[in-house]
């Protein structure tokens, strides 16, 4: 595969040991109105103080039930919305400080679930793909040539696709175009927010193969958000499990999938469907729907659905405990000093 860059890839500022992205205490609360005129103002704690980092060249999978804050996290990282607090350091440079938002958006791009809503219906595919490069100062002719090249890179025939409009293409083709568009500025980090979730399985497999190829040829780092635990296992190096605006567990996928440490992760994993009709699931792991982040429970937010909940879980919010091998969990059960009767140390 040959790659034609019209924009040079952003330089590797901090070297291989510097994380590509360091996020500290990122928080976003949304004001929401209750129903009725005198209803009190409420806040949805959509993302509530999350800290993590991502290494160059890795794929971080993000999982959790709907409403746990995955998309809000993605939009915060892209700075499509302003965080209430917290900081972001991209390759050693403070975002909003040394690194301007404009430069951040060249380095970080996003692909959404809805392939249609993400494309301007009145622009041809060629114009959609050339738009951002032209804004960033690439001459129109060169941007058009690059658009054709990008289409080939994502497995589409540029001659037939360039002049088309989004509605003339299938969902799978549109998602390939959204991926091409995300790559047009040669970013270093691509956030994929349920990017394959709406696709049929046979098309999803094609796009996953494509993402693996592009990661190599464009030297990318991915944040891969998905509700599909099998797909995250397949594509990610590390997984981050979220519950009601918090990170509850973070670590290498091989470790988390082999031995999930948080009771929520265990519940989530045991809700995976069997693919063997002779070995069906016999019991549900947790009851009830995921609660919403307005007035979340005190202490550990999962305690209202947790089979292991004890008094301490309501009194204190658990801090992240290091389990070794880059695996961490926010649960009193893993902290012998927590006062949870069943807590045990991990050595």
């Amino acid at each position: 595969m040959t790659v034609v860059h019209t924009l040079p890839p952003a330089p590797d500022v901090g070297g291989p040991a510097e994380p590509l992205l360091k996020v500290e205490g990122l928080t976003k609360h949304f004001p929401v109105r209750g129903t009725g005129f005198f209803a009190p103002k409420l806040v949805a704690r959509a993302v509530d103080g999350i800290t993590f980092s991502i290494a160059k060249g890795e794929t971080l999978g993000v999982v959790g039930e709907s409403g746990c804050g995955k998309s809000t996290t993605a939009r915060l990282l892209m700075r499509l919305i302003e965080p209430d607090s917290g900081s972001m350091i991209f390759d050693g440079e403070l975002v909003g400080g040394e690194l301007s938002l404009r430069d951040l958006r060249r380095r970080m791009q996003m692909v959404f679930q809805d392939s249609y809503a993400s494309l301007n219906p009145r622009l041809t595919i060629a114009d959609s793909l050339a738009f951002a490069p032209v804004v960033h100062g690439i001459p129109h002719g060169e941007a058009m040539a690059a658009a054709a090249d990008l289409l080939e890179q994502v497995g589409l025939d540029s001659a037939t696709v360039l002049g088309r409009y989004p509605h003339q293409l299938s969902g799978g083709q549109r998602q390939r175009i959204n991926i091409a568009r995300a790559l047009a500025l040669h970013p270093r980090l691509v956030i994929l927010d349920e990017a394959v979730s709406a696709l049929d399985k046979s098309v999803e497999a094609q796009v996953l193969n494509l993402l693996v190829d592009l990661k190599r040829s464009f030297d990318l780092t991915y944040i891969f958000i998905s509700h599909d635990l099998n797909v995250v296992h397949y594509i990610a190096d590390r997984a981050m499990v979220m519950y009601l605006g918090k990170i509850v567990e973070l670590g290498p996928v091989d470790r988390i999938y082999a031995a999930p440490a948080h009771p929520y992760t265990r519940a989530l994993f045991s809700a995976r469907l069997s693919s063997d009709p002779e070995r069906r699931t016999v019991a549900v792991a947790i009851e009830g729907d995921p609660p919403n982040p307005i007035n979340p429970p005190s202490g550990c937010r999962f305690r209202t659905r947790c089979p292991m909940a004890a008094e301490v879980c309501a009194a204190h919010e658990p801090a992240a405990i290091d389990l070794g091998f880059g695996h961490s969990v926010a649960c009193h059960l893993h902290d012998p000093a927590s006062g949870h009767a069943e807590a045990r140390a991990h050595v």
Partner: peptide
């Protein structure tokens, strides 16, 4: 056969998915 091969499940990690070509 193709549908099952393209459905991601445990045990496929680091292997190329056997996607059905076309639409």
């Amino acid at each position: 056969t193709g549908l099952f091969a393209s459905t991601v499940h445990a045990g496929l990690k680091d292997r190329r998915l056997d996607a059905i070509p076309g639409a």
